[in-house]
Design a protein around this nucleic acid. Structure first.
Lengths: 232, 232
DNA sequence: CGAATTTTTGATGTCTGTCAACTCCAGTGG
DNA sequence: CCACTGGAGTTGACAGACATCAAAAATTCG
């Protein structure tokens, strides 16, 4: 993890982040709080139960968030990509561990100073609340997935989620980028790596998807995936 | 659903709600927005995808929130009791259906008017953000439960959740009140009613719990339940 | 009290997990 | 350059936890 200089003006994902909630003078104030940081792939950004001193905006790379049970069973609660906000714990401690999947760059903000800025720029706090509400809706979708969907429906939903977020980031590629391992996918969907692998093979044989390689999947039958994800 | 007069002063759960974020004059302003409403058991408070015109504070009774798949499979994403906030969708539409389990009373606020109050009383918005963050942490716990816990661990976690929230409400009773049906419990835990029933029977035979009747369960081995819930 | 509904219990089935072997690559070093 | 190695992914055989189907028991309620 290294600290670099500040280069917000060149930030090509500014519109995706909460930075876009502020303008001109306000944004300069925000920038004064920020440090650019980098993480190697597989390195930990913070641990569950650690003091939540910082929040982050991911500017490149991908991150997984997870919680553990006493015996090591793991549940990945989310994946983050460029433009996503990290550390929406205005609690004292983080409620999950955040780990870089690939090399990650991010803007880091001291939580307390950022919160003080809320009083000056209510728009910032509004934006934060909006993000929390969106995350909550996503969490509820994920509960539906984990509790009630079949393996096939889970994998279809997962691929769709990746495709939609990739599109949201403005990436225009026929293939879905899948930076995470089978093990990460399994722990996100509440399955085993074997079931994930078998399900992908099944979707491939049905010609619903096509695997360019393990990290790039093409959706051939997009409407098929959508129907699967809805439980139809 | 009937509308009653306003009686905040007599509200015995005011400290539990976001009303406590305001004082004196501020609270009077808040009160002007509010309508007291009642719902029969099994009645729907609002539907998923409906316009989110109101938010609520539950003052008595219990509520379940759920989402459906295309073929009718259901996932209950949460239960609400006295003091809980409902409708934290600052979106245009509700992201789930809310249904009364027992007769429910609630304070209802027009969402847009409440949001306008945010600008005057930032403390209110802070409180809202805090609630959203807490709900998010709870949602992540539930993902861990749904994705990685066994039936026994799920039921144990569920009973502990009820016990803790009952305690938080200040109810001092050895027995855990379980107002929801086995079907609701099953759809909350991602199980079937049969598995829920069998698991409760098993816990009873192991003398970890004792069923006074179907709606009242006593935790005999509390530490046993806690260990189960942590996956130890 | 009796019908309807909910819950429990039993028998059986299946989806996904477990265990194990094989394949495929990427990286290493002779 | 290519054999070697180790990790990730795939595939197969089998097992088990939970689901499904069915019926009895308990509870609710008119």
């Amino acid at each position: 993890m290294a600290v670099r200089s500040q280069l917000c003006d060149a930030c090509d994902i500014r519109d995706l982040t909460f930075c876009s909630a502020l303008h001109g003078e306000e944004h300069i104030r925000l920038r004064q709080l920020l440090t650019h940081v980098q993480y190697d792939g597989h390195s930990t950004i913070f641990h569950e139960a650690e003091e939540a001193d910082y929040v982050f905006n991911v500017t490149s790379g991908s991150v997984k968030l997870y919680k553990l049970l006493g015996d090591g069973r793991r549940q990945i609660t989310g994946f983050l990509f460029a433009g996503d906000f990290l550390g929406l714990a205005l609690n004292l401690t983080y409620s999950y561990t955040a780990e870089a999947i690939e090399p990650v760059t991010a803007c880091r903000f001291p939580r307390q100073k950022l919160e003080r800025l809320f009083d000056e720029f209510p728009r910032l706090e509004k934006r934060m609340l909006g993000m929390a509400v969106d995350e909550l809706a996503a969490a509820q979708d994920q509960m539906l997935l984990l509790g009630r969907k079949t393996a096939k429906e889970k994998v279809a939903s997962f691929l769709l989620m990746l495709a939609r977020r990739q599109e949201h980031r403005g990436v225009n590629d026929a293939a879905i980028e899948v930076p995470m391992s089978r093990s990460d996918i399994a722990d996100y969907l509440g399955l085993t790596i074997e079931t994930v692998s078998r399900t992908l093979t099944q979707l491939r044989k049905e010609a619903t998807i096509s695997l360019k390689d393990n990290k790039h999947i093409e959706a051939i039958g997009l409407s098929m995936l959508e129907d699967l994800a809805e439980g139809l």
